[in-house]
Amino acid sequence: MLEGESMAGLEIPTWDPETALLIGTILLEAVVLYVGYGGLERLFGPYLMKLLVGGEENAQ
């Protein structure tokens, strides 16, 4: 349960709660972003597509 004391020649990872929290945060962020952007795409995707594709016609 001790923090890794040395990085030199470190081959087998030792348990470090602070680093585990850091990596866990990145993992959580990735999942939240996947789900979140997925939801946003479903909500606003069709509207955005209409805006982009029909943009020229709307301008005329």
Partner: peptide, 24 residues
């Protein structure tokens, strides 16, 4: 990342915003 993180090599101030942009 875990091994680098143990030596203080992972900066969340870099990774979090990069991911925020790249996922989109």
């Amino acid at each position: 990342s875990y091994l680098y993180g143990q030596g203080g090599g992972v900066d969340l101030g870099i990774v979090a915003p990069l991911l925020l942009g790249s996922a989109l």
